[in-house]
């Protein structure tokens, strides 16, 4: 019963001056965000939130995770997601919620004891909502980072077709275990998709390999063989050659060529293609 009254007080606090409060809230937030969010958009966002909040309080919700708060939570999640995507800081995001406290402050100065109590109670609710905002903000950030890492993986491992039945992966940059595994799977799938029996793994652009990466490369080559294709590794730098020997990795079974051109020549020869240079032909 007491709780119900409490909620009524909170609603009262928010709806005494009705629309004015929401407008003041929008002004307050708009001032803190500058011109990076359109006023119309902000107005829509915050009014929706405001209405949802009043609604939730009317139903007696005082906890962020309460059933009745689901609409508020959904709106806040969307707001935080947008802010995170637009590159706002966590502070700038959470201020949208906390600004409502400041808007209500005048009530404190002229209000009765009851109103002060209601204000403090509402403050607690808003604190909870603010924290929720930051949480969904960082969650979105994490998702963005994960998605970017995945995109980077995709971008950095192209499989190209050099000839009918010959594919190549030119690897550039540092290879870690995860990336090597992605390459492995992509290369093997490309063998099936293109019907290629020859594959070249060119590591000219790779500065260093460690044991794990070398093992992954080896496994790729054995797996390709199981599927009926041959792999050649080209572009092994002197440093990598030294590492391979020093680490004691068995590379005996693997065909290596100094350059991608040599590897292509071999792959063509194996697929029965002869390259003939014509004397005296000028181009």
């Amino acid at each position: 019963m007491a709780k119900r009254d409490n909620a009524a007080d909170l609603v009262g606090l928010l709806s005494v001056e009705g629309q004015d409060l929401a407008a003041a809230w929008v002004r307050e937030v708009s001032a803190s965000l500058g011109s990076r969010v359109g006023t119309a958009e902000l107005d829509r966002e915050l009014r929706e939130l405001y209405d949802a909040l009043v609604d939730a309080l009317q139903q007696g919700a005082t906890d962020v995770h309460a059933e009745q708060m689901s609409e508020v939570r959904a709106l806040l999640t969307e707001l935080s997601r947008n802010r995170a995507r637009q590159g706002f800081s966590p502070t700038e995001t959470a201020i949208s919620v906390f600004a409502l406290k400041r808007v209500l402050e005048p009530v404190l100065q002229e209000g009765s004891g009851d109103e002060t109590r209601a204000y403090l109670e509402l403050g607690r609710v808003l604190d909870g909502l603010g924290l929720f905002t930051i949480e969904s903000y960082s969650q979105t950030r994490d998702e963005i980072i994960t998605a970017q890492a995945e995109q980077l993986l995709e971008l950095s491992t192209p499989v190209v077709r050099l000839w009918d039945g010959v594919i190549a992966v030119p690897l550039v940059g540092t290879l870690d275990s995860a990336r090597t595994q992605v390459v492995m799977e992509k290369l093997l799938q490309a063998l099936v998709d293109t019907g290629s029996e020859q594959a070249i793994i060119d590591i000219t652009g790779v500065p260093a390999v460690d044991t794990q990466v070398a093992q992954h490369l080896l496994k790729t080559i054995v797996a390709a063989r199981l599927m009926g294709a041959e792999c050649t590794v080209s572009g092994i730098s002197p440093q990598i050659a030294q590492t391979i020997v020093a680490l004691g990795i068995e590379f005996d079974d693997i065909i290596t060529k100094a350059s991608l051109a040599d590897a292509l020549k071999l792959a063509l020869r194996r697929s029965g293609v002869d390259l003939v240079a014509h004397e005296g032909v000028q181009r």
Binding site: L188, A223, A224, L226, M227, G228
Partner: peptide, 28 residues
């Protein structure tokens, strides 16, 4: 042999030395 199967066999430690392989029936 599918790529996922080949990767798994290699990880399992089975490299099927001495078995000839081909990508598809025609190439086989």
């Amino acid at each position: 042999m599918r790529p996922a199967v080949a990767i798994t066999l290699v990880e399992l430690g089975l490299s099927l030395g001495g078995v000839d392989t081909a990508l598809d029936l025609e190439k086989g």
